[in-house]
């Protein structure tokens, strides 16, 4: 039991890296996703096609490959661009490129969720807003967006949890610099030292579970606030959907 507690404490600094990757990419991915979802629904065929293609490509390919591809792409520009500019230490750093790729990935997944919600926004409400003489921006701000975010929130919560789970593979694709080890790499290193798979991997799993539950709790609070006008808010289900 003592050993287990020690082990849990040992993993705490590693969990910070996973939380960092998720926390850095979620807000950026959110903004990006809104833009992509609106782009996909845009009447302009060029913008619509581009957003559609982007979402399809990044949802249809493994995150692992996306990491390798974008990292090696960044590496190939190193001599020509990053080095002369003196920013290669920054651009090639996992703490930069990790959130970047995660943002691109979660942007696509979240955009699909938001697009679905956008299409589910009641038509009558939008028509009523137009009848009131609201401008396009006002319609979006006061009618479409509040509906969209309420419809999308449960699915978005699952997506956030799965993005957090996806941070587990960041350091399998990117180089580990110094002591910056996340949960998976810590578990793997400890395993290679004493071959105790059951202890180390279970503790890493526990950390992932614990943080996921915290995310569910916090997002549940937000959902309650979003739904505060409703008589009885439908409860959030612990039903994470799909991971990448």
């Amino acid at each position: 039991m003592d050993r287990l507690l020690q082990e849990i404490a040992l993993f705490a600094p590693a969990a910070v890296f996973n939380v960092y990757f998720a926390a850095a990419s979620i807000p950026l991915g959110f903004v990006f996703a809104v833009a992509l979802a609106l782009g996909k629904a845009s009447p302009n065929p060029l913008i619509s096609r581009l957003s559609r293609g982007y979402i399809y490509a990044f949802r249809g390919s493994p995150l692992f490959i996306q990491f390798f591809m974008l990292y090696s792409l960044a590496l190939s520009f190193n001599v020509a661009v990053w080095k002369p500019w003196g920013i290669s230490w920054f651009v090639l750093h996992p703490l930069f490129i990790g959130p970047l790729v995660l943002t691109l990935n979660t942007g696509a997944y979240t955009a699909e969720i938001f697009y679905g919600a956008l299409r589910a926004v009641p038509r009558g409400e939008v028509e009523a807003a137009r009848a009131y003489g609201m401008s396009r921006a006002q319609q979006f701000r006061h009618v479409v967006w509040p509906n969209l975010i309420r419809l999308a929130w449960p699915a978005y919560t699952n997506e956030v949890v799965f993005l957090f789970h996806a941070t587990a593979i960041v350091y399998f694709a990117l180089p580990v610099i110094g002591n910056q080890r996340d949960l998976m790499i810590t578990a793997k290193d400890l395993f290679e030292r004493d071959y105790n798979a059951f202890l180390h991997f279970s503790v890493a799993a526990l950390w992932f579970l614990a943080v996921s539950l915290v995310v569910f709790f916090l997002f549940g609070l937000v959902y309650r606030r979003l739904m505060r006008h409703m008589p009885a808010a439908p409860g959030m289900r612990f039903a994470p959907k799909w991971l990448r």
């Binding site: 996806a166 798979a197 991997f201 799993a205 992932f208 996921s212 991971l243």
Partner: peptide
Amino acid sequence: IVRGVPDVLFFLFFPLAFEQ
């Protein structure tokens, strides 16, 4: 439980644990 932890973790853990 299996859906609550990352797939990579289980993917690495199971073969190692089975071998052991």
